[in-house]
């Protein structure tokens, strides 16, 4: 970056923000609520990058529902999601996870797009987005694209978003008929915890059989991720006939959770197994 380049942008129009990203790319860091970035800067000795504040761009905020989906503006704060009747009714796990994203003060600032772009493995809303089959709307000066969220995170804190792109919206399809959902975040305490394990499960049923399963997990690996092997194991089965060992085996195929300052790999694995049992109505 050139010396003397502008260090702070606060555009009111999305087009302006995209133009800045087009010209400066990765040199400029978008910021919305700042609840993750501010902490990261505090922990780092690196100087703060140039910032692109998205907070004044009205078109990035809001919730819009139609019969097939809901589209959520990227800078919509968690508190809005938690309190929104449409979200509570149609996508209740998102209302729950938004209400468990840090404290009230955090929820008033933290945005859904920020939670996705920050790409923390322990992020609160991504498991839910994964379970609902979310799609991300990415925009750049050269156009828009819509991608499946399930392929968005490519590695620890890495995503497929290009340096000139911003996430502008998150789209959640309306769950199919006969779908049940189950969400649980496990931290040490009840409020404003960082998850040790979180599971959001979306199960579509036909009689006693699960015909479509999506298990979105946080804190089990380097990125929030769907448990593919587990879903494969469950789909087509009556959960009551599933062998506990088989579930554990599938989870072991999907994840190798690690020890860190917040918990142990062994605990995360066991809880993941137990939560899946809970989601399947076995516990």
């Amino acid at each position: 970056m050139s010396a003397g380049a502008q260090r702070w942008y606060r555009p009111r129009e999305l087009a302006e923000a995209l133009a800045i990203k087009a010209s400066r790319g990765a040199d400029v860091q978008p910021i919305a609520g700042g609840t993750d970035l501010m902490v990261a800067w505090r922990l780092s000795t690196a100087p703060m990058p140039a910032l692109l504040d998205l907070g004044a761009i009205g078109e990035l905020r809001g919730i819009c529902e139609d019969p097939d989906r809901v589209v959520i503006g990227a800078t919509t704060p968690c508190s809005t999601l938690a309190a929104d009747a449409r979200i509570q009714r149609g996508w209740p796990m998102l209302a729950q996870s938004a209400a468990l994203t840090g404290s009230v003060a955090i929820q008033n600032r933290a945005t859904l797009g920020g939670n996705v772009m920050n790409a923390s493995p322990a992020a609160d809303n991504p498991p839910v987005l994964l379970a609902y089959g979310a799609r991300l709307h990415l925009a750049s000066a050269s156009g828009r694209r819509v991608v499946d969220y399930s392929g968005f995170h490519t590695g620890y804190r890495q995503t497929i978003a290009r340096p000139d792109e911003l996430v502008v919206a998150i789209e959640l399809p309306r769950p199919a008929e006969a779908t049940t959902v189950w969400y649980r975040k496990v931290g040490t305490r009840r409020a404003q915890a960082i998850s040790k394990v979180a599971l959001a499960a979306c199960l579509q049923w036909q009689g006693s059989r699960v015909i479509r399963a999506r298990f979105g997990f946080a804190s089990l690996g380097p990125v929030p991720a769907l448990a593919g092997a587990l879903a494969h194991r469950v789909e087509g089965c009556d959960p009551g006939r599933l062998d506990a060992g088989a579930l554990a085996q599938a989870i072991d195929e999907d994840f190798r959770p690690i020890d860190d300052v917040r918990s142990t790999g062994a605990y995360r694995r066991q809880v993941a197994i137990n939560l899946v049992r809970g989601a399947l109505g076995l516990a």
Partner: peptide, 24 residues
């Protein structure tokens, strides 16, 4: 208190050293 390799407190943040909140 989680210790690092030098016996230091590794979770030396209120984020990672968990004290009760009003909800607990």
């Amino acid at each position: 208190v989680v210790r690092g390799a030098q016996g230091e407190m590794a979770n030396n943040r209120i984020t990672n050293y968990i004290i009760p909140t009003s909800a607990d």
